[in-house]
Write a protein that binds this DNA or RNA. Structure first.
Length: 592
RNA sequence: GGGGUCGUGGUGUAGCCUGGUUUAACACAUCGGCCUGUCAAGCCGAAGAUCGCCAGUUCAAAUCUGGUCGACCCCGCCA
């Protein structure tokens, strides 16, 4: 490029520049050679502009232009000219003008790309990930990544304005029990010992409160060695927040503030505040789910009290086994076929449902194979509870609490999709509050933290810690957007005595607590302020902001479902020497 | 660990169910030629895949079967 200096981005050239000489640098987006005049759409991160090589205007530039191919990198210097009225291209932002090239420099050539650099291209994702640098050249991807920058910038500004300090915490940290599987880093200096990559900076941010920083935030990478999903990557970015002396309302206020600003400044949408709040109990009851999509009005109803003595053995059995019966009304769906309801039933099996009972409310009355087992009283109560009208489809199932709720939650979503009643450009934020402090783990036969072991129990529930842990509600809250959990947090325990009692309830011994969290318990002895916070998943948030279907599209270099980076080919083997230094040995059976 | 979908020139797809007249088709891209106003440029021509990989069934396999590898979706898992 010699001494040339770019004067602007492609799309910054406009009508006001007519007559001026500009210097542009970028990629050949498309090439149209008419034998005489040659047109090129020049692309940079801002967009496209048409440049013209006319042999009568600049013969040597035109000669060189004959060589050009897509994706070559060039610099052009030329004159901005208006296009004749009938040649204006309304599809281009710069369509009213074009740049007549006086001089052109070829800065780099390009091999033919494995796929076209254009938005419409439906390229298989494997290929996109292998050639991520080409995928990221597509304007659609650039837009998403740039949008992410703007959102993160806004977040930093917002928190700075509100008196928060961004403070870094270690990546080489300590493995903790509870929670996700840790990524481990072997220590070279201490044979047989390992660091763990943080699942979140949870303990460090609490320590920062003990240290008196009062308000902390961080846009930070977190790592969890668990299986991937469309909305889960092994490394992901959190907006991590902690503050001292907070009420939950302070956290709500802060987070609503930053989200409202993002929606206003990035999407141009005013979102109503304060966000609605729903207790966990109510969410489970109405939606069967702790992160309900409230964009559509379909609700579950508990019917357990109606069928305690039912003739229908599946209902009776479910209740006898200590389960619940829940129903849902799909309004106007009575005409759905047997196949439709069979498909729903089949789909629910993945969530543990053994069956689904479908009934139609037709002109002739309630219809369905199960109707004959239900008494008139049961039918009437059920129809009333479900507000069923003629033409409605009624769907009911009974099982254990968790299975029924999960299956009915999935059913609710399937029905909504099938009825096509999910509004696309609606953003329903929701706080889900009053979570249970513990869940019973059937596998491990012990209580586990719903949120994490540092969550403060509700004050009035403290005395249940030792004898009724399942009934304790936590000072914990999740923020949900359109059925996606985008964040969660809690008020923390700041008193060592309560923390110890929670560890006991979790089956964590004094000794284990001391080894794993001794530093935290120690810190709490020296005047720990009451504190609490929240963490938001930036990737999931961005996915919704840009309207995508996978978080991989808002992550510049994501991993595949098998946790591989196809571009750099990670993970990969390392040399014997490296292993030796780390005091590691790979067993033979792992290599086959 | 389990269930499902997919894998055909550089890219996206058709063909596969109903194995053999298909020399594996089409579009885009690529390469060469023509063309002074295109912007999904156009026209003419060329090259390019043995059908992810392995094994089996068969006289014969892109097509059927089994396995395997990879991508994606989901269950488990994800405090």
């Amino acid at each position: 490029m010699g001494s040339w200096k770019r004067t602007s981005y492609c799309t910054e050239v406009g009508k006001t520049d007519v007559g001026k000489t500009v210097c542009l640098m970028g990629w050949v987006n498309s090439y149209r050679d008419h034998g005489g005049v040659i047109f090129i759409d020049l692309r940079d991160r801002a967009g496209l502009v048409q440049v013209v090589f006319n042999p009568t205007f600049a013969a040597s530039a035109h000669d060189k232009a004959n060589l050009l191919r897509n994706e070559w990198v060039i610099a052009v210097s030329g004159e901005v000219r208006p296009r004749p009225a009938d040649m204006v291209n309304p599809k281009l932002r710069t369509g009213a003008i074009e740049v007549w090239v006086k001089e052109m420099r070829i800065l780099n050539r390009s091999a033919a790309t494995p796929f076209a650099i254009e938005d419409e291209a439906k390229i298989n994702e494997e290929l996109r990930l292998k050639y991520r640098y080409l995928d990221l050249r597509r304007p659609e991807m650039q837009k998403k990544i740039i949008c992410r920058h703007r959102v993160v910038k806004l977040i930093r500004d917002h928190f700075d304005t509100n008196g928060f300090y961004e403070i870094e915490t270690p990546f080489l940290a300590k493995s903790t029990p509870e929670g996700a599987r840790d990524y481990l880093i072997p220590s070279r200096i201490s044979p047989g010992k390992f660091y763990a990559l943080p699942q979140s900076p949870q303990l460090f941010k609490q320590i920062l409160m003990v240290a008196g920083f009062d308000r902390y935030f961080q846009v930070v990478r977190c790592m969890r060695d668990e299986d991937l999903r469309a909305d889960r990557q092994p490394e992901f970015t959190q907006l991590d927040v902690e503050m001292s002396f907070p009420q939950p309302e302070d956290i709500y206020e802060l987070i609503e503030g930053v989200l409202a600003r993002i929606w206003k400044e990035i999407l141009g949408i005013e979102i109503p505040r304060p966000f609605p709040k729903l207790s966990w109990d109510e969410a489970m009851s109405k939606y069967g789910c702790d992160k309900p999509d409230t964009r559509y009005e379909l609700f579950l109803q508990d019917l357990s009290d109606i069928f305690p003595n039912s003739e229908y053995r599946f209902f009776k059995q479910a209740l006898a086994d200590g389960g619940i019966i829940k129903g849902m009304n799909a309004p106007g769906c009575a005409e759905w076929s047997r196949k439709d309801t069979d498909d729903l039933t089949y789909a629910l099996k993945a969530y543990g449902a053994k069956g689904l009972t479908a009934m139609r409310l037709q002109d002739s009355g309630l219809a369905g194979p199960v109707v004959k087992y239900l008494s008139a009283d049961e039918q009437n109560k059920m129809l009333e509870r479900l507000s069923a009208k003629k033409g409605d489809l009624i769907l009911i199932m009974g099982d254990k609490f968790a299975v029924t709720n999960e299956a009915m939650n999935q059913l609710r979503q399937m029905i909504a999709r099938k009825m096509n009643i999910i509004p696309e450009h609606k953003y329903n934020f929701l706080w889900v509050v009053d979570f249970p402090l513990f869940d019973w783990s059937e596998n491990e036969k012990r209580w586990k933290s719903t949120h994490h072991p540092f969550t403060m129990p509700r004050a009035e529930d403290l005395d249940k810690l030792e004898f009724d842990p399942g009934k304790i509600k936590a000072l914990a809250y999740d923020i949900v957007l359109n059925g996606v959990e985008i964040g969660g947090g809690s008020i923390r325990i700041h008193r060592p005595d309560i923390q110890e009692r929670v560890f006991h309830a979790l089956g964590i011994s004094d000794e284990e607590a001391k080894i794993k969290f001794g530093f935290l318990l120690d810190a709490f002895k020296y005047g720990a302020p009451p504190h609490g916070g929240i963490a938001l998943g930036i990737d999931r948030l961005m996915q919704i902001v840009v309207g995508g279907t996978s978080i991989r599209d808002v992550i510049p270099f994501p991993k595949t479902q098998a946790g591989a980076d196809l571009m750099v080919d990670a993970p990969s083997e390392v040399s014997e020497d490296q292993l030796k230094e780390l005091h590691l040995e790979v067993t033979k059976e792992d290599l086959t």
